[in-house]
């Protein structure tokens, strides 16, 4: 039903292109080719300015998984063409994720706290880590991460574990690049959130497959010394 008639917009576009192809060499015509078709039948759908839009979402915002996967695959390919090795590639994916993370943090906390009487920030590390595990993961991937672990050997290392990372679902890493973990992107998000909250850390992603969860990924957080010192003082 919906596609029985060609869409009005499509027909308008083709009309204008045939009209302009006649006068292709006239400069006046070439400017109309690039202007938007202004037919009375089409309502002008100008999106409101960001400052006029509401930041609270009443329904859960969802992004098409296929579209995201496609975009992410392009991002990885684009990055890979411009790097010399796996470490470099992971570092760049981390940087891309960092840009997301700063926004996720600010928006997520705004949604949670802006209505409260006295908005709070997280200043202790463990609650902050918990909120990354649940809230950040829920905001970004729609579900909490699977586990948090603390390193036995090093006091400054923590791990967030995701058994089936959403962004890697359709990625199969070639054998010769087996160290590569595209979750470096996620690591970047985590790093940005920690940085924003004032816990500078180095965050990396590692593949840690198990029999049940072949794409299990560990996000390793290595905190800077200053964070541990501060935690000692606050205790």
């Amino acid at each position: 039903m919906a596609y029985s008639q060609p869409h009005s917009r499509v027909s308008v576009l083709s009309n204008s292109s045939t009209a302009s192809s006649v006068e292709h060499f006239s400069p006046a015509a070439s400017t109309t080719r690039f202007s938007l078709p202004t037919t009375p039948g089409l309502p002008s759908r100008v999106r409101p300015n960001i400052y006029d839009r509401n930041l609270t979402k009443t329904r859960i915002p969802e992004v098409s998984g296929a579209a995201f996967t496609f975009l992410f695959s392009e991002m990885v390919q684009y990055t890979q063409k411009r790097v010399s090795g796996i470490n470099d590639l992971e570092r760049r994916l981390n940087t891309l994720g960092y840009r997301i993370g700063t926004r996720v943090l600010e928006l997520m906390v705004w949604r949670a706290e802006s209505q409260s009487k006295a908005p709070k920030r997280e200043i202790r590390f463990l609650p902050a880590l918990m909120s990354i595990h649940t809230q950040v993961w829920r905001a970004v991937f729609g579900k909490p991460a699977d586990a948090i672990e603390k390193s036995v050997e090093n006091a400054d290392e923590y791990m967030i574990i995701d058994n089936d990372p959403l962004i890697e679902r359709y990625i199969s890493v070639p054998k010769d690049m087996s160290q590569l973990s595209c979750s470096s992107f996620t690591a970047g998000i985590v790093e940005a959130v920690l940085d924003g909250l004032g816990f500078p850390a180095r965050v990396t992603a590692h593949n840690t497959p198990t029999a049940q969860a072949p794409s299990r990924t560990t996000i390793l957080i290595k905190l800077e010394k200053s964070v541990l010192e501060r935690e000692e003082v606050l205790k």
Binding site: N49, R53, L107
Partner: peptide, 23 residues
């Protein structure tokens, strides 16, 4: 804060970009 969060959502804005938007 709300206005800042909205500014921040602009992909071209970083935490270190001066805010020049007239709105």
């Amino acid at each position: 804060w709300e206005l800042y969060v909205k500014t921040m959502l602009n992909p071209f804005h970083t935490a270190h970009t001066p805010i020049r938007s007239s709105i």
